[in-house]
Write a protein that binds this DNA or RNA. Structure first.
Lengths: 305, 305
DNA sequence: AACCGTTACGGTCCCCGTAACCATT
DNA sequence: AATGGTTACGGGGACCGTAACGGTT
């Protein structure tokens, strides 16, 4: 009865926080099968219903929520012990300096990486720097960053840096409600419309122009804003159309916003995010990257329409 | 690094508290071999010396002591969780009413049983009643006790009660310093000397008289006291000789006391303790008895001379 | 139709107990 | 000489992954 183990508590916690077995399995780096069994075994052993199966989701029951509060305390104490061991060994607190583009924030890539790094190194001290790809690469070269999440990576042949593609997401269009292209974004309805695009990234803007021309419409690029949330806000104000990585939609477009989100599979635009690190990868950095590489949401799930 | 498990912490704690692998192994109900390996593996994994091997004892290093403080917190949180589960199931707190003779206290039998019961049932509520064998048996029959540790058990054929011999200890003599029998307790030096014996246990007193006669001396039974500690105190005051179960010596006879403790292997007197329970044994009671039955100290270790 | 939770099956790894060896008292 | 810690070896159990089934969206 008292033979609970920390692994079991970690399983419960992951399922409770993720809300679904599959997500929790990704986070725990195990497959869904043992998770399902463990959860059921635990519930049977303690004789309490921890989760209620609602459709395909597992939500905490009231007793389950109270239970998880206690479990969290146990795990917190265990983490404190782990950090105490690190301190006792005379190791300074592990530090991690991450730079990233804001798309990496809103797609959850940053959070996934940080959680993985934190889990591997309890008591981790982290600094996050937002910026654009070129400057982040510069700071990485200068040694100010351990790792960068960028759109435009350094050349693959660069001997000093290692790059890995971690996200290739189709774009989702954010169109003001009532806009001529709101219902059916097609080349003819998009032609000549006002657009809100990223600032400074001239290369990507030219790529966008070319892709649009190939698809059969000409964008009127009227606004440039460095911040993703700002672009969405401008679109919500009716100033023009903007685009997002599909996975950023839930985080950036609340349902109440007066915009329509549309996927445009016929437009071959992909938003890419790379991790870039120096040759000498520390263990924290490795933990971060593995966390980022295991996608939290299947990449082919379409945005809501 | 953070993959510590509660079982490992329990192992560390047991070894730290018992001071020796063998004792900790008994307490944990495992053999010494896996314990040794686990301890070494943990030390290697965290890269810190937790124990210092002094001869055949394992004593905590300074860092080990600090570590154990944290480990205790983790285990305490886990125990709280276990008790929360019990409360959540609507089960009232498990209660255990134990009765025992004082020899069971001073030999550590009571403590061993209670620890085992507490470990199996965190949050256990316990009441301990001291008394003599007959009255404890009566209270057991009356349902006021769940379990009794007694010297003189009910007849083995009794259909209502179950008895198990859990201690058969040779007697150790407590002789005032300077007493004629202090150096060499032999029949001739003991003959006619004043004795301090148990109160009320007339049967055992007669047994003592008979055994002494067979051994070749006649005791002058001058004092009777119900309490073991009182008898030792009277002996320390020089009033006479008394006897103890050998295993009770460390607890009852501090080195500073003006008495000599002597083992008398030629005197075939054994002090026995039985557990007595009703036929219907609850799980707590079972946990208690298994804890009592696994001897904490090898029974054939001679008392210090 | 895709995805998810569950179950069955096979493999692997960790842990434990027995036994032998060596050190300590 | 006996007790205790350590190591070697073999067995058992727990956990995991792959695969197949059924329900949900």
């Amino acid at each position: 009865m008292s033979d609970v183990e920390l692994r079991e508590l970690r399983y419960l916690l992951a399922v409770a926080e993720e809300g679904t077995l599959a997500q929790a399995a990704v986070r725990l780096q195990v497959s869904a099968s043992p998770l399902s069994r463990q959860i059921r075994a635990i519930e049977a052993r303690i004789g309490l219903p921890v989760f209620a199966r609602r459709g395909r989701r597992l939500v905490l029951t009231e007793t389950g929520a109270r239970l998880l509060d206690r479990a969290r305390e146990v795990l917190a104490a265990a983490d404190q012990l782990a950090e105490h061991v690190r301190a006792e060994r005379g190791e300074p607190p592990t530090r991690l300096a991450v730079g990233c583009v804001d798309a990496a924030v809103h797609t959850g890539l940053l959070a996934a990486g940080l959680r993985s790094a934190e889990q591997a190194h309890p008591g981790l001290r982290t600094t996050v720097t937002l910026g654009h790809s070129p400057e982040l690469i510069d700071r990485l070269r200068a040694g100010e960053l351990d790792l960068a999440l960028v759109h435009t990576p350094p050349p693959a042949a660069d001997p000093a840096l290692i790059r890995t593609l971690v996200l290739q997401d189709p774009v989702a269009l954010v169109v003001p409600t009532g806009h001529p292209a709101a219902h059916a974004p097609r080349p003819d309805t998009l032609d000549g419309q006002a657009w809100i695009v990223d600032q400074r990234a001239t290369a990507s803007i030219e790529r966008f122009r070319a892709t649009a021309r190939d698809a059969g419409f000409t964008p009127d690029i009227r606004y440039q804003a460095a911040d993703l949330a700002v672009r969405v806000s401008l679109a919500a104000a009716g100033l023009g159309i903007t685009m997002l990585p599909a996975r950023a939609v839930p985080a950036l477009v609340p349902p109440a916003l007066p915009v329509t989100v549309a996927s445009v599979p016929w437009l071959p635009l992909r938003i890419q995010v790379y991790t870039v690190t120096t040759r000498r990868v520390r263990r924290v950095v490795a933990a971060f990257t593995t966390g980022v590489k295991t996608p939290r949401v299947p990449s082919h799930k379409p945005p809501r329409c």
